[in-house]
Amino acid sequence: MALKRIIPCLLLRDNGLVKTIKFKDSTYIGDPINAVKIFNEKEVDELVFLDIDATKDRKEPPYELIGDIATECFMPFCYGGGIKTIDQIRRLIASGAEKVAINSAAFYNPQFIKEAATIFGSSTIVISIDYKKNLFGKTSVYVNGGKKNTKKDPITYAIEMEKLGAGELFLNAIERDGVMNGYDIEMIREITDAVSIPVIACGGAGELNDFKEAFYQGRASAAAAGSLFVFQGKKRGVLISYPDPTEIKEIINN
Results as ranks from 00 to 15, higher is better:
Ala105Gly: 02
Ile155Tyr: 07
Ala205Tyr: 07
Val199Lys: 06
Glu160Pro: 13
Phe112Trp: 03
Leu171Pro: 10
Tyr183Trp: 05
Tyr142Gly: 00
Ala201Gln: 04
Val141Leu: 14
Ile159Tyr: 07
Val179Trp: 06
Pro154Ser: 06
Ile155Asn: 08
Pro154Glu: 06
Ala194Thr: 09
Met161Asp: 03
Ala105Lys: 12
Ile185Pro: 02
Val143Thr: 15
Ala106Tyr: 01
Gly146Asp: 12
Gly203Trp: 05
Glu98Asn: 00
Lys99Phe: 02
Gly204Thr: 10
Phe112Gln: 03
Asp193His: 13
Phe170Val: 15
Lys132Ser: 04
Lys151Gly: 01
Gly167Leu: 10
Ile197Glu: 02
Ser123Arg: 14
Val143Ala: 01
Pro110Gly: 04
Leu169Thr: 05
Val143Gln: 09
Glu115Pro: 01
Ile197Ala: 00
Phe107Gly: 05
Glu162Lys: 12
Ile155Gln: 09
Leu171Tyr: 11
Ile159His: 08
Ile185Leu: 03
Val143Glu: 06
Glu186Asp: 15
Tyr142Thr: 11
Thr124Val: 15
Gly206Ala: 01
Ser104Thr: 15
Leu169Gln: 02
Ala205Pro: 05
Glu190Arg: 14
Leu171Glu: 07
Ile159Ser: 07
Glu168Cys: 14
Tyr157Cys: 05
Ala117Arg: 03
Ile188Gly: 03
Phe107Cys: 09
Gly146Lys: 04
Lys99Pro: 02
Glu98Trp: 07
Leu171Ile: 15
Gln111Trp: 02
Glu98Ile: 07
Lys151Trp: 03
Ala106Val: 07
Ala205Arg: 03
Gly145Gln: 03
Thr118Arg: 15
Glu162Tyr: 11
Val141Ala: 00
Phe170Met: 14
Phe120Glu: 01
Asp130Ile: 13
Ile174Ser: 04
Ala158Glu: 02
Ile155Thr: 12
Ile197Lys: 12
Thr150Arg: 14
Gly165Pro: 04
Ile191Arg: 10
Leu171Met: 10
Ile129Asp: 02
Pro110Val: 09
Gly206Leu: 06
Glu160Gly: 12
Gly165Leu: 01
Asn103Glu: 10
Glu98Ala: 00
